[in-house]
Design a protein around this nucleic acid. Structure first.
Lengths: 340, 340
DNA sequence: CTGAAAGCGCTTACAG
DNA sequence: CTGAAAGCGCTTACAG
């Protein structure tokens, strides 16, 4: 039904090998021969069968993303970036949700990679720090890329941004506005970025000789609800902070909702800053001051590391080249000087 | 490197055909033979190579989702449902964002299906009403499923819910609380569900003899920002409605933000209702009254229609069996009787 | 109930 | 610069 390489070869009057050469942009084809083949391809509307190609090359042109992330905005944005790069190279992306706490985790992961024979796997945080998953990948010889991992570990490239520095600069932004009493909402404990952002916050406070009060540090989980609840703990006492720095946008929005509930005006009574620059933050009122994290670009970079073969090379050499992407502080309307 | 069907056959002392029979759960295998094969499979940790199987069977075990949706929450939830069903059946999902306005849309879609040879395509709204995409799929003989389509059209099964009835019941809920002055925020004009929800609203109002004022109907786009802006138009005049029914949760949350900005208390001064029951709505304060749409189940149903072969049958018979899933009105804290 | 042979549509050495 | 042959790892008729 669909035309095969034989049909194209017949029509062009060449061998299938020559068609293969043209389709794969290999050298040693005369321009005229090439044109002949291309015409036949166009006339028949031929596309190579990816299964046949996969079988012959022992490659699948398929990249899997293992994820376990509470933020739909993050997942979607990352996915879009990875797909963009895949499309340029004729690759496809398959999304595989992974429950890190599943009892038979390797029973889930192993079939995934051994049946599909993906050319590579992208691990978003916190799966990027799951030792069992890393081990299975390593043992099976599957190239993989770790996103924002915690521990440096050989065998796979890393894609990350400088979370410490970003949190440092955002804290600095609040301090420069005049805030001295700053509350902090920590991120999900299993995500290493959560720890790094907290480190950056503490460092900035210490550098200016400002006190980090225990009561003003709250443990969140990257969800809107946790931000809502942490803000209540932060704001209900009489000695409340004049600014809150939340470790991601979802929690910042939760904090904002709680502030409204308590009758506080933002930013006049309270400044709020987030982290991520997800779409919701830029349309919330007032617009959220946040750190722009290049999530789309991180997805594209991760796909590129697999497509380019760097991930495979890292696996063989057991090293971990890393790509560090740029962030940017986005000062919008949710932060202002403290009252009085 | 990875064990093949020959390795298993050798170890079990049978032919590869018998191994194939066991792996595919086909009849005519003696229990003892079956056990022999299973032991060999376990011992070698054998998994059939999906590329080889695809090539031989002319099937890919791959399902593509074509989407073009502004709501990350919707996309992720749908994807999770589809993946759950795929995993049971050894299928995988590849996500393909489609820009309906791309100038060379068929140049994008055609390679996608002819190279991958997916076993089926799931079209979420509004791609499910894109005539060009439908035509390409139909011509190529690729089974597909349409989610919440507008026009009934032969060739593919549909998965939908009764948007008219759901909007009708939600409007009824507001009327029963005592509201007579109800504003409505319409959804994105290219999504057929947007029109159906508006129809349900109008029907409920008419059935109770209530007036639908032009000024109280606003055109939104399913985004937080559009809900925010529509609510401003609705609430800034002196004769404002006592309740707002937004066509999705994102817009309802936008309306809520605007109400706060204008100093209105929810639900005492103003009731707000949404549609979808996305996670954000249930943690916002006050929790959003909304329609629970079974997005996860719709994803699972769509995958099932392809895996079970119903989509293929529909293509051959040129009919369109439909699966209509149940909704539920979730009355939470954002709606209450009108003031006075 | 089980097996030997051919074929799915490509690519990879190997010749020339 | 081009081609004939073998092989990737499965499944599908066809025998027995």
């Amino acid at each position: 039904m669909a035309p095969t390489i034989y049909d194209v070869a017949d029509k062009a009057g060449v061998s299938i090998k020559t068609v293969s050469r043209v389709m794969n942009a290999m050298p040693n084809v005369r321009p005229e021969t090439r044109d002949l083949v291309m015409s036949a391809v166009a006339a028949l509307n031929y596309r190579p069968n990816i299964s046949a190609r996969s079988l012959a090359k022992a490659r699948s042109f398929l990249i899997a993303v293992f994820f376990d992330n509470p933020s739909a905005g993050y997942v979607t944005e990352f996915q879009l970036g990875a797909i963009a790069r895949c499309r340029e190279a004729g690759f496809h992306l398959t999304m595989e949700p992974i429950d890190a706490l599943a009892p038979d985790l390797d029973g889930i992961v192993l079939p995934l990679i051994s049946a599909l024979r993906v050319d590579g796997v992208i691990l978003t945080s916190p799966v990027s720090d799951n030792q069992l998953v890393l081990q299975v990948l390593q043992d099976s010889g599957t190239p993989y890329v770790r996103i924002a991992p915690d521990q440096v570990q050989g065998g796979a490239p890393e894609v990350r941004m400088d979370d410490v520095q970003a949190a440092y600069e955002m804290t600095r932004h609040l301090i420069d506005l005049g805030h001295r009493d700053i509350g902090f909402i920590r991120g999900h404990p299993t995500h290493s970025a959560a720890r790094l952002r907290f480190d950056g916050f503490c460092k900035a406070m210490a550098d200016r000789g400002l006190e980090v009060r225990d009561r003003w540090i709250q443990q969140g989980f990257f969800s809107f609800r946790s931000g809502f609840e942490c803000a209540e703990a932060l704001l209900s006492a009489s000695d409340r902070p004049t600014a809150i720095f939340a470790s991601n946008d979802d929690m910042a929005l939760g904090a904002m909702a709680m502030a409204y509930r308590l009758g506080l005006n933002i930013p006049n009574d309270l400044s709020i800053a987030g982290f991520d620059d997800t779409p919701a933050g830029s349309v919330m009122w007032p617009q959220l001051t946040t750190v722009r994290q290049p999530i789309f670009d991180m997805g594209a970079a991760a796909a590129d590391l697999i497509i380019s073969g760097e991930a495979k090379a890292a696996l063989a050499a057991h090293n971990c080249p890393s790509r560090v992407l740029e962030f940017r502080i986005i000062a919008r309307e949710s932060t202002a000087p403290p009252p009085n």
